[in-house]
Structure formats: C-alpha cells, structure tokens
Nucleic acid binder design. Structure first.
Length: 683
DNA sequence: GAGCACTGC
C-alpha cells in the first residue's frame, strides 16, 4: 500500500525513471520517439513484458491466476495477446476479458486490434449492450462488459467457447463482477480445463485466492491458484495529511488550492468532493477568490465535472489548459476510475464519497456521504502520478486514514437483489441462499428479493421460477417490476406506452443537468395531472415527433439529449423482447386509465396514501414518505399514488409517481392486498 | 419546497 516517495527507489525500468526526471516537455519528446518504434518493440518495452513467460507458465499450471498490478502496467492489453500467441485460441477457442465499463471495453479492443494489425471486429472484437463488434467465427480475443458475459451464461451456461476468462478490475467489485466470480467457480467444477484470470489493482488478493482455492490439505504445493504481482509505470506521489482534523472540508479544499497555487510549480489540480452542490459552490468560490490574486500571478481556472452535466460541459475539462493558467478540476467519484484527465499533478481528497445503499427493512435506497476506503484513497492519489511525480493532499489525519476500511462494501451486499435472484434461478440455481458468493449478501436482502418476486408471481409456492412469467422476467434486461408492466401490457392494450415508460425509467438523467427556473417552465409544458410516468411518455413522444430526435431541440427544451437517445435504444431493445414473447405491440391512445392500471399491475407493492399533514405512508410497511420536489405531483393533491422508487437523502422521497384509484390495488393484486383490505376505503 | 455518487444488462 505504501506510496513511493521522491528520492527513494521507484518501480519501473531505469529508462522510465530517467525520463520522468526530465521536465514535462521532455516527456512529450520521449513519447513521440517511442511512437516511431515498431509496435512489437513498443510492446516489449512495457513493464509487463518481463513477466510474460511467468504469466504464461502460471496460467498453464494453475486453474486460476490472480494478477495484481496498478493501472497502466499493460495487463489489460497484453495478457490476452500473450495467451493468443501461446496457443490458447487454437481450435476455435476464445479468450474473454471483462471490464466494468463500456468505454473501457471498446477502447481497449481498438488498441489491441491496432497492435495486432487486424481489423477491429475480426480477430479482436468487443461486446457491450447496444453495440456488438465481433465475428463468432473469427474473433479470438473478445473484450466485453461483465454484464454482457453474464448474459451469455443464459445461452451457454458453461461458456464453453472460452478457454480463458479474464475478469479485469475485479477490485471494483461491481455487481456483475461478483456474480460472475461465483458462477465461474461453479463452471470450473464442470470444466477443469477453463482458466480464470482475476486482475486487481489492490493487494487484497487473498480474498480471491481463498475463494478459488479448492485445495483442502495443508500442503500448499497442491493449491490450484497462483498470485503474481506486476510492477506499474506510474510516478511517485507524495502523500500529505492534515495534522488536525478539519471542520469543513470544502473550505479546507479551497484553501489548499490557493496554497498549492502560490507555493508549488505549475501543474493542474483535481479536487474529489461528494456531489453536485459542493462542486458548484466550490467552483464559484474559487473563481471569486481568484480575483484577489496579484495581477502578475498565474491565472486559475476551476471546472466542474459530474455525471449530471451535459456532454458538452463535461468535455471542457479535456481542453488543453491555456497559457499561464492552472486548471482546477472539481470532481465527484466520476474521476476516480471512469474519467482520466491528463496533466494532473496535485490531488486534493476530501476523504468522503456518496454511496447508495438498499435497506431490506423498508425497501428504500439511501444516498449518504460515507468515508472512502483505503483502496479508494489510493486510487484517487494515483490520479496525480500519470505524467510526472505528483502530490496528494488528504484532508484528514494520517491516523484517520489507518482507521478507514481496506475496500468499499461490495455492491452485491448493498443492492436490491431482485434481478440477481431471478437470474440465478433462471440458471438453475434453486437455493440462492446457499449460492457460493465470494462475499455473501446479507440474508435479509435475499429474503426481501424473494418476497417481491413471489408477489409478482415470478416464483411459485416452492420458490421455483414460474413459466413463462418468471422465466421471461429473468430474461428481460430491466427490473422485475418494470418487466411485469411490459408483460402485462397486453391486458390493457398499451405495450407502446409501457415500452416508452420503461425505457425512460431505466434512464433517470433526462433532466438532471439543469435546475433553473427556465427548466421548470419547460417541464410544465410536458407535465400532466396524472403524474410523472405519463409526463415522461409525453417528453419522449415530443422528442420523436416534434423534436425529430435532434440535439438542438433537446437543448431548446432543457432536456438531456444523451439520455433521450439512450432511452430510444433501450426502447428498441425492449421491443424486440416483447415481440419474442408474443406480446402484441398496441397503443391505447390517450386512455390514461389503462396506462395507470397497467403501471399498478407491476408496482402495486409501491403504493402510498396521503396523510392529513400532506406526507404519505406506504400501504405495505406504513413507512412515512414524501413527494420529491422534482415530481409534477409535488404541488398537487394526490390521495393515492404508486411510485417507481424511494431515495432517502434528507427525507425519504418517492420519485416518479402516478395517481391511482385504490380499488385497482385489490383488483390487480388481491394476493398482496387481501389481508389489508380493511385499510382501503370502501368502493 | 429539494437537489441524486457511479456503473451495467
């Protein structure tokens, strides 16, 4: 875990070390020179090349190999090529390499194709949702999102075409990474020849080791798992801690920016904060205080970055820094792994992150600020050492760093598991409570998911998947409640409307980039008194008809073009599933009763009744809820509603609501509301 | 009368 301090021996070849001592201009020359080398020569220069034979030996000898290496060591691009060269793709076999993010899968595939001098989509391909670029007969190395490889287990439960499966960035412990880790262990029992490579950036490799090691004797020479550590190519980062804890990390971050600006040599800064509010305030405050700098001083340019910004706003941070100016990027966790900004030399880490958790007791999600893990703090610091040695300022004491968790709680232990349970059942894993997870989720989470699936009639009294409903819900790439309204739409002749609503709900960033009065005016043009679902339907329909799917129209109406285009793709994909399930694609026109009844047939469990004081209580658990101010129903009178989700921030807020008639609940879900009938008004 | 980190099928 130790960071390399300047003046000590650092990792990497002596050639690399010589280069980094030069100024940044010299590094540019260095890179240009290497681009003149042949591709094969460049590959041999990567630090990982020295470990090539050892990696191949370990993969040959052990069923599972754990590779620990920092980002930038070349493992993602090189290891699949080494395996290909060593014959692991002979006999039409394929090497898979999974990534938690879409962009990583496509860009890495492109780079490897050019290194191998082949056309992307032939020997080297990729597979991500809405974009497949590989040839089943030709492709030998396939980069894919972990979610896509998981999907493939539905078609071929043993993933029999793959000789080696490399799970990259496993330390991030994404939901699908964790499910795959469990399923691969199961597959390996039936296919002992399958090789698994787990690649991780942190040193918590023992967890992976113990999980895959099936050697029950004390003789460790019989282990079927091996570990190898690779050296990275990043530069040393000097870590600074506060001597005393700070009261206000935003204020402390701003002060640190100006300290660096005045005392340190040129180089851009990144600040990690937790959310939009903090970021916007910090950017404003830095601009304001920058006006008090002496006229002769270097200029300072603060820029925000978070997912809710439009792509144009996001692109600004990648512009080259103007002359005599220091760029200060103020970021959420988006810059920890998803976005890489070149030229960062200083990082300021507030030590916190906003994390989503799901409560099995109430079925609510909460979004709360929690301390980061040591692994996250290390990852953040590493963002400073990409082009030259950097400095990291942690806005907490060294002692509190050592009290942090080693790594974040894996997603699978804090998520709504309804979809996961459904998927495992579809793979024939009946006793999901005993499935071999690397870190099992709490039993309450699993039980909550089983209850919901039972109430949706996706599971029978014995907990088995129902046919065809349960199986179809498992195949659908949406939440089971959304899947239910799609499959039930034939009863209300409204599949067209449900497809749109489902696509829009799977994609919440439609309007989050602006929050001005102007936007409020725009929103009113689309809103209807029945609630948010039909409002979303109107927005999408206007985008298609009046807006002609154009970015310009979206801009004029304060809508997020990226989000609407994505909704369009999701809708097309969901439509293909409905067609395959023989659900007639009909429209109910403007019959909002049909639409709202159909919504209730999937969301009956999420029903709430207004209280005399204006708040709401759920029917199921009697939990107090509030309408989120972004809802079109916020200022309206809504005695009974169903809602898409609850997010707990300052209060428990329902998001995306629709007004319903309570009689529909007993009509559509008598099995769920039978015993509570007395609480409903007589009709 | 609040304000939602980030992914993914």
């Amino acid at each position: 875990m130790a960071f390399w301090k300047p003046g000590t021996v650092a990792p990497g070849t002596s050639v690399d070390r010589e280069a980094e001592k030069e100024s940044s201009e010299n590094i540019v020359t260095f890179v240009n020179l290497s681009s003149n080398l042949s591709i094969q020569q460049q590959r041999k220069r990567l630090p990982i090349f020295k470990s090539r034979d050892q990696v191949l030996y370990l993969v040959e000898k052990y069923q599972t190999t754990i590779i620990v290496g920092q980002t930038g060591c070349g493992k993602t691009t090189q290891i699949p090529q080494y395996l290909n060269e060593a014959g692991w793709t002979a006999g039409d076999r394929v090497i898979a390499c999974t990534q938690p993010r879409r962009v990583a899968a496509t860009t890495v595939a492109g780079r490897v194709a050019s290194e191998m001098n082949v056309k992307l989509g032939e020997e080297v391909g990729y597979s991500i949702r809405f974009d497949e670029c590989y040839d089943p007969n030709l492709t030998r190395i396939k980069y894919m999102t972990d979610g896509m490889l998981f999907r493939e287990t539905f078609l071929d439960p043993l993933l029999s075409q793959y000789s080696v499966i490399m799970i990259d960035e496993a330390h991030e412990r994404s939901l699908y990474t964790d499910i795959l880790l469990g399923i691969l262990k199961k597959i390996q029992k039936k296919r002992p020849e399958l090789r698994i490579i787990i690649s991780s950036a942190t040193l918590d490799a023992e967890v992976f080791y113990d999980f895959y090691n099936t050697n029950s004797t004390n003789d460790s020479s019989k282990d079927n798992v091996s570990i190898i550590s690779l050296e990275g190519r990043t530069f040393p980062v000097d870590i600074h801690y506060l001597e005393e804890p700070c009261q206000d990390y935003v204020e402390s971050a701003i002060q640190t920016v100006f300290d660096i600006h005045v005392k340190e040599p040129p180089g851009d800064i990144i600040i990690f904060l937790t959310g939009r509010d903090e970021i916007d305030n910090t950017v404003g405050e830095i601009s304001q205080r920058a006006t008090t700098l002496p006229r002769s001083a270097m200029k300072i340019m603060p820029l925000p970055i978070y997912a809710g910004l439009s792509s144009e706003q996001q692109m600004e941070i990648f512009e080259p820094t103007p002359f005599n100016t220091r760029k200060v990027v103020v970021a959420t966790n988006i810059a920890e792994a998803s976005i890489t900004i070149e030229g960062i030399v200083y990082i300021i880490d507030c030590g916190f992150v906003k994390l989503r958790a799901f409560s099995p007791k109430t079925g609510m999600e909460s979004l709360t600020v929690v301390p980061v893990s040591k692994a996250s703090a290390q990852q953040r610091a590493g963002r400073a050492g990409r082009v030259m040695p950097g400095k990291a300022y942690r806005l907490y004491t060294e002692e509190s760093f050592y009290r942090l968790r080693d790594s974040s709680i894996p997603e699978i232990q804090r998520s709504n598991l309804a979809q996961v349970v459904l998927h495992l059942k579809a793979l024939g894993i009946d006793n999901v409570l005993r499935f071999d997870f690397m870190t099992p989720p709490p039993a309450e989470l699993m039980i909550r998911a089983l209850e919901l699936l039972y109430s949706l009639r996706a599971l029978d009294d014995y907990g088995r998947l129902t046919m065809p409903l349960g199986m179809q819900l498992a195949e659908f790439p949406v939440d089971p409640m959304l899947g239910k309204i799609l499959l039930d739409s034939y009863q209300f002749q409204c599949a067209e409307e449900m497809l749109t609503i489902a696509a829009m709900l799977s994609n919440v960033f439609v309007n989050s980039s602006t929050s001005s009065a102007e936007f409020e005016d725009e929103k009113r043009k689309f809103s209807v008194e029945e609630g948010d679902h039909i409002t979303l339907l109107n927005v999408f329909n206007a985008f298609i008809t009046r807006g002609k799917k154009s970015a310009r129209w979206c801009h004029q109406h304060c809508l997020n073009f990226r989000a609407l285009s994505r909704a369009l793709s999701i809708r097309q994909q969901l439509k293909k599933y409905l067609e395959r399930f023989d659900v007639p694609i009909e429209s109910c026109g403007n019959d909002t009763v049909k639409i709202r009844k159909c919504l209730s047939s999937g969301y009956f469990a999420n029903a709430a009744k207004m209280q005399p004081n204006g708040s709401f209580r759920t029917i199921r658990d009697n939990v107090e809820l509030h309408i989120h101010p972004s809802s079109v129903l916020f200022t309206r009178n809504a005695p009974w509603v169903i809602f898409h989700e609850v997010v707990e921030t300052t209060k428990a807020f329902m998001r995306e609501l629709t007004i319903i008639d309570p009689a529909w609940l007993t009509e559509l879900a008598p099995h769920f509301y039978e015993i509570k009938k007395t609480t409903l008004p007589a009709h």
